Amino acid sequence: MERPFLQSALRELQVFLRSPRFWATFGAVVLIFWVTGPYGTTERLATVPRLGFWLVLHAVAWGIAVTTIVIANTLLLHRIASLAGRMALGTLIAGVPVGLATEAISRLTFGGTPTLSGLTESIVSGLLLSALFCGLTFMTMSSKQAEALSPAPPAQEQADVPLLRRLKPENRGPILHITVADHYTEVTTSRGRELILLRFSDALEEIGGTPGLRVHRSHFVADIHVEKLLRADGRLAIRMKDGKEIPVSRSRADAVRSRWG
């Protein structure tokens, strides 16, 4: 596979792995299966082993499903316009490996000899589980995740923001944050983060009509990346949607409060 494909797939996978919503959904599903004990696991396993069984099974199944869906999304990005359509196709592909993996875990736990009918049933169950994972993940995705899994901006939009042309194609998306990093400028977009050899002041001249504000001598934050304003130790700060906190200089505090307060 080409390096850009691998980079894009890894970036999209990191979107899920860094998402609190994704992990909260995963934890909730494991908890439901543990408490309800479907497929006779309540009778066959004690409380703690049952939790371990469902935790391992779901970790493996979700890992396979999400990885498959991400790869499918990357491969089909410019062939299928709908994110839901790409995820649905990835779900169909993931059904077989998810089913085989869950069958293997069940056999290792409870014993028994695999049969053709049992494998077929596991593959069907794997398809249903993949659909469940896909549906829950899609419904709980944040807007930032959806942006990161969507196609890059069209050429015209990129032309309106000259700074994007300096980034690798897989990182070109709406600008979220620009900051100084030693002798470089770090540009964060909805599709990734990249260091470029460019002065911060020159980078700000190339953001086109990106709505946002320079909040500090070393930071520019776009409107869509602001979560809320904070006050720490008597100073104003911004919490961005990726969880980072950015200081606001005193000279720009009034403008920040006026825009996002």
Rank of each mutant, 00 (worst) to 15 (best):
R86I: 01
G90W: 08
L13N: 04
W62H: 01
I207Y: 11
L116H: 06
S130P: 00
A146D: 00
I246R: 01
F200D: 10
C134M: 15
F133K: 00
S8F: 00
E103S: 13
A232H: 13
E12H: 03
H183M: 12
L127R: 02
F133P: 00
R50E: 06
E2R: 14
L57K: 05
L236H: 07
L51M: 11
A46K: 06
L45H: 06
S106W: 12
T140L: 13
R259W: 09
L197Q: 06
R217G: 03
F26Y: 14
F110N: 06
T68L: 07
V29W: 11
H58I: 11
A222C: 03
W260H: 04
V248E: 05
V56K: 02
T25K: 00
L164F: 10
R252E: 12
L108A: 14
E43V: 02
F110R: 09
V96F: 14
K144E: 10
A131L: 15
L31R: 03
V66L: 12
E103M: 13
R79W: 14
R257S: 09
G95H: 03
L17Y: 13
Y184D: 11
V48Q: 04
I69P: 01
T210K: 10
G173R: 07
F110G: 08
V187W: 08
N171D: 01
I123W: 07
V256T: 08
R107T: 05
G95F: 01
L176P: 01
L195Q: 00
G208M: 13
P20V: 11
W34M: 04
P247C: 07
S258T: 08
P4L: 05
L128N: 02
S19N: 12
V221S: 04
S190Y: 02
L204A: 10
E205S: 15
L132P: 00
P247V: 08
A152N: 12
P49A: 06
E2Q: 13
V56I: 15
L204P: 06
I69T: 00
E2C: 02
A59S: 15
V221A: 10
T102S: 14
Q7H: 07
D160N: 11
G126S: 01
A72T: 15
R79T: 10
K144S: 09
R250I: 06
A131N: 06
L167H: 09
A84T: 14
A148C: 12
I32P: 02
V124Y: 08
